[in-house]
Simulated scan of single mutants.
Amino acid sequence: MGTVWRAFDQLLQREVAVKEVLIHDGLPDREREMLCERTFREARAAAQLDHSSVIRVYDVVQDSDRPWIIMEVLDSRSLAEIIADDGILPPLRVAEIGLSVLSALQAAHKLDILHRDVKPGNVLICPNGRVVLTDFGVARSPNESRLTSTGLLLGSPQYIAPERARGRPFGAPSDLFSLGATLYAALEGKPPFDRGEPIPTMTAVVCEPPDPMPNAGPLEDVILGLLEKNADERWDAERTKSAMRAVIAAERRRNSTEEAPPRRIREQTAPPSAPKIVKKLPDRPRGTTPTKHRGGRHRRSGEGDLFTALTRPIMTAAEATAAIVVSRNNSGRHASDTGLPSAAPATAPSVAKESAWANPPTWGMLIAAFTAAIGLGILLAVLAS
């Protein structure tokens, strides 16, 4: 219907897009007037909508008896180009695009503006993700007169609503049907009722169910709801918006789960205990029995030898000290005391008694004996523990 040029506004010093309306030579004057009026209508409809998903129109001028629309320039590709070049889109991206287009349609419907030509070629996708609905060339407001001749149908047959194909009254649900067909094409790579030619295609739109959609996934119910033949039973904007938001949330959660690296779960194990030191006991000689200690504990092999070696000097010292004391006490006894004949003179008793205590046990001897006894007690206590 027209060609879009990239231009530069010398007055405002900015780049703009200029849409040229193509008027073929030999076109009857009546149809020429209708085409020019439709261009002005497009400019007015877009200018009324202040929405991020609707292209902004700056001005409209007429030169050489043809109108030119001055609008924002977008570095973008149409959804139709993306499908042709890159293939089908995943449900998440299709739902995001659908939600943006739906928001633009709601803004237009609030002003009683019907787009009437929603299709992949009129949906622009910018590199930053922005989605823009453009080409309001066949849009119509209720207070504007009809510009179509009798029997002339405006719009694309593959995306037109059944009530419009039948020539019946239509409204906002017709744009929603076209939105459903557009999203179907983004998911499956082709329109849902395409039969090659306009008449068979419109017959399928009116009478046949949409083709299967194996790639729709969670969007299948949404698409089927929008493609309902009966406009009264077709999903409305609010129900469609709620369903697409739910799909977007679910798909984002699923994608984040799949892309996240697996979390390593630390095994809950008992803390390591101190290593047990097991000392191998030496073999016990045959015919011997372990010595039983206090508390039922058996004395370790070799423990008796160690005890004997440690206590022998102490016992020897104690015995020697005791022997000295005893011998000192017994060395001066009379022969009569023992019942044996005395070899000493009869006058010797007093001298003998004195000599018996002439060298009594010293304190050093007693202390040595006492120390030996204490040492023996300490050693026995240590070995017993």
Rank of each mutant, 00 (worst) to 15 (best):
T3K: 14
R6Y: 07
D9K: 09
A17V: 04
V18C: 06
K19F: 12
V21K: 04
H24Q: 15
D25N: 06
D25T: 08
G26D: 00
D29Y: 05
R32P: 02
E33V: 09
L35F: 04
E37H: 10
T39G: 14
F40S: 07
E42G: 07
E42Y: 08
R44P: 05
R44M: 08
A47N: 05
Q48N: 10
H51V: 02
R56D: 03
R56M: 07
V60A: 11
V61I: 14
Q62Y: 08
D63T: 10
R66A: 10
I69D: 10
I70F: 09
I70G: 03
M71L: 08
E72R: 12
V73C: 11
R77Q: 15
L79W: 03
E81V: 06
I83D: 03
I88T: 15
P90I: 06
L92Y: 02
S100T: 08
V101N: 03
A108E: 01
H109C: 01
L111C: 04
I113Y: 00
L114Y: 00
K119W: 06
P120I: 05
V123F: 04
V123C: 03
L124K: 03
L124V: 03
I125K: 11
I125F: 08
G137R: 07
R140I: 13
T148D: 08
T148Y: 02
L152H: 07
G155N: 05
I160C: 01
A161P: 03
A161K: 00
E163C: 01
G167H: 08
F170R: 00
P173H: 01
D175C: 00
L176M: 11
S178E: 01
L179V: 00
G180V: 01
A181N: 01
T182R: 02
L187H: 01
E188M: 12
P191S: 06
C207F: 15
E208D: 15
M213Y: 05
M213E: 03
P218K: 04
I223Q: 00
L224S: 03
D232I: 00
A237D: 01
A237V: 00
E238N: 06
V247C: 07
R252G: 04
N255M: 13
S256K: 12
E258T: 09
E259F: 11
I265D: 08
A270V: 14
P272C: 12
R284E: 12
P285F: 14
R286Y: 07
G287E: 05
T288E: 14
T289P: 02
K292I: 15
R300F: 08
G302L: 09
E303R: 10
G304Y: 12
F307V: 15
T311F: 03
R312I: 08
P313L: 10
A322C: 05
A323C: 06
A323T: 10
I324W: 12
N329V: 14
S331N: 09
D337N: 09
S342F: 02
A344R: 06
A344W: 06
A346S: 12
T347V: 09
A348L: 01
P349R: 15
P349A: 15
V351T: 14
W357L: 13
N359E: 13
P360E: 10
L366K: 13
I367N: 11
A368R: 10
F370V: 14
T371A: 15
A372G: 15
G377N: 11
G377D: 14
I378G: 04
